[in-house]
Every structure is written in structure tokens, then in C-alpha cells.
Amino acid sequence: MRRLTWFNATSLTLGFAFLYLPMVILIIYSFNASRLVTVWGGFSTKWYASVFQNQAFLDAALVTLKVAMASSLAATVLGTMAAYVLVRGGRFYGRTLFSGMIYAPLVMPEVITGLSLLLLFIAIGLDRGILTIVLAHTTFSMCYVSVVVSSRLVSFDRSVEEAARDLGCSPFEAFRLVTLPIIAPAVVSGWLLALTLSLDDLVIASFVAGPSSTTLPIKIFSSVRLGVSPEINALSTILICIVTVGTITASLMSKRAVRQRQKEEQLAVQA
């Protein structure tokens, strides 16, 4: 194992400081009693109370949560299906085009994606609202789910699935009872990634959102354009805490699932 040199330690310190020091400063100033975000006026939690009393922020947060839950669920289902077809489908007519269309949103600029979806919704006469945001977020996030699930399916031991087929399971039952539980950590990871991307999206949502479907990132961006207020710092701190708790919870669940699967494999070997 290589020792940690001073160069590596300095690089890590500067890198983490560049990434996380602004967040730390934001969290500290969210407890600032002064209305001026650059002048410390004492410790106070009044801005957190102000956030929960701001109806515009609450409405935007509700819209964001609805869109994130719906789009992440749809993206997980469609992305898992696409990954299964790409890994298990073998060679079929149009496979190159299909895989290219699945992975295109990974490299496509968000401005182009948002503008193209806006033109599509206008062409088909679909009014912009929560539905259009859900469709847009599902479109660009399902490719991330597909990548995560595909990486798990590639290393999947197909002999377990074949054994289930030999015992009388249909292809769908083998997938539901054997394959899906094994790849569940990857599916959950893809769902969390899609959920995070939806909660964080600003560019695409700004193209396809309607007047009555303002998401929280759009609301924050419009508020910041008029000047950063302590309420924005408090709201951002709340979001950071939610993301942190969700990440830690998902990591613990994933480790628990891995340990459980290892125990089951050991019991199967001993039997």
C-alpha cells in the first residue's frame, strides 16, 4: 500500500476545501441574525422559521417532490427494462440505434434537451405543467438508471437464473423471484440517482415548466437574481441535510443488502 505523501495530502485538502468550504460557509451564515448575508450579526434560527412560513417556497417544494417521485419511479422502471434488453437481448435489428438513443442524454447539453422537449410539447399541444416536467425528467434520467443497472447485469451469474428456469419458473417468474432481488441494490441506486437529478434540475425544468408548476430550483434561482437573502441560506442548508441523510441511509442499506447476500451465499454453499 502506498504511503500518503505531502503532495497527495495537500491535493486532497485543497480539493475538499474547494468543494465543501463554500457549503460550510453557507451553513454557518444560515444562522446569521443579520439580514445582510456578508455581515455576521449574531446567532439566530429565525430564518429557518421564515422559510417554513414562506408559502411560495412550500408550494415549489411540493411540486418538486411530486415531480421527483413520479419521474424517478418511471425512469427506474424504463431504465431497468432498457438495461435488461441491452444486456440480455443479444444482437437484434436496431440495437445500435436503440443503445445510442438510450445513452444520448448523457452527452447531450441540457439546453438542447430542454429546448427540443419544449418544441415537442408545443407541437403536440400539451400544456406545460407538472406532467411535462415529469416527462422531461424521465427522459434524461432513465439513461443514468440504465447505465447503473447494466453494469450489474453484466456481472450477473446467469446460472442462478437458469437453475430457476430448470425448476419450472417462467422467464418472468425467474426475473421477478431471482434476478430482480439480486440486482435490487443497483436498481435502488439508479432510483436514488434519478431522484437526485430531478430534485437538482434547473435548466430543463425552466424550459418545460408552466406558470403554476414552479419547482424549487427555479424558485431559488429567481430569488437569487434579486439578491441572496438569509432565507436562501437556510433553505439550502435544509436541502444539504436532506441529501446527506439520504446518502448515508442509502449507503447503510446497500451495505446491509450486500452482507445479507453474502450470508445467503455462504448458507447455500454449506447446504
Rank of each mutant, 00 (worst) to 15 (best):
114 G>A: 09
132 T>W: 07
191 W>E: 12
136 A>R: 02
129 G>I: 11
177 L>W: 03
118 L>T: 05
176 R>D: 08
106 L>N: 07
140 F>S: 04
199 L>K: 05
203 V>A: 13
171 P>R: 15
172 F>K: 06
181 P>E: 10
172 F>M: 15
165 R>C: 06
202 L>Y: 12
144 Y>T: 13
197 L>R: 01
194 A>G: 08
109 P>V: 03
111 V>W: 00
157 D>F: 01
120 L>N: 03
192 L>S: 03
143 C>R: 05
196 T>D: 08
203 V>H: 07
118 L>N: 08
203 V>E: 10
125 G>E: 04
174 A>S: 14
164 A>S: 14
155 S>P: 00
176 R>G: 01
138 T>M: 05
154 V>C: 04
114 G>W: 08
131 L>V: 09
163 A>Y: 04
128 R>I: 10
135 L>H: 01
126 L>N: 02
200 D>V: 08
172 F>T: 15
201 D>E: 15
198 S>I: 12
191 W>G: 05
135 L>W: 00
205 A>G: 12
150 S>L: 03
147 V>H: 01
116 S>A: 12
189 S>K: 11
133 I>R: 00
177 L>M: 11
197 L>A: 04
132 T>S: 10
153 L>C: 00
169 C>S: 15
151 S>Y: 00
183 I>L: 08
204 I>V: 11
114 G>V: 11
175 F>H: 11
139 T>L: 12
179 T>Y: 02
130 I>E: 09
178 V>C: 11
204 I>T: 02
140 F>V: 08
121 F>S: 02
125 G>W: 08
160 V>M: 15
137 H>A: 04
123 A>M: 13
175 F>L: 15
120 L>M: 15
204 I>G: 01
164 A>R: 11
178 V>N: 07
147 V>M: 04
139 T>M: 13
122 I>V: 14
147 V>A: 07
136 A>F: 02
115 L>T: 14
154 V>N: 10
199 L>F: 15
205 A>T: 12
177 L>D: 05
137 H>G: 00
159 S>A: 13
113 T>A: 07
134 V>Y: 03
111 V>S: 02
108 M>F: 14
151 S>D: 13
125 G>L: 10
167 L>F: 13
154 V>Y: 08
141 S>V: 05
133 I>C: 06
118 L>F: 12
123 A>C: 01
173 E>V: 13
144 Y>F: 14
205 A>S: 15
119 L>C: 04
184 A>W: 14
160 V>Q: 13
132 T>Q: 09
203 V>K: 09
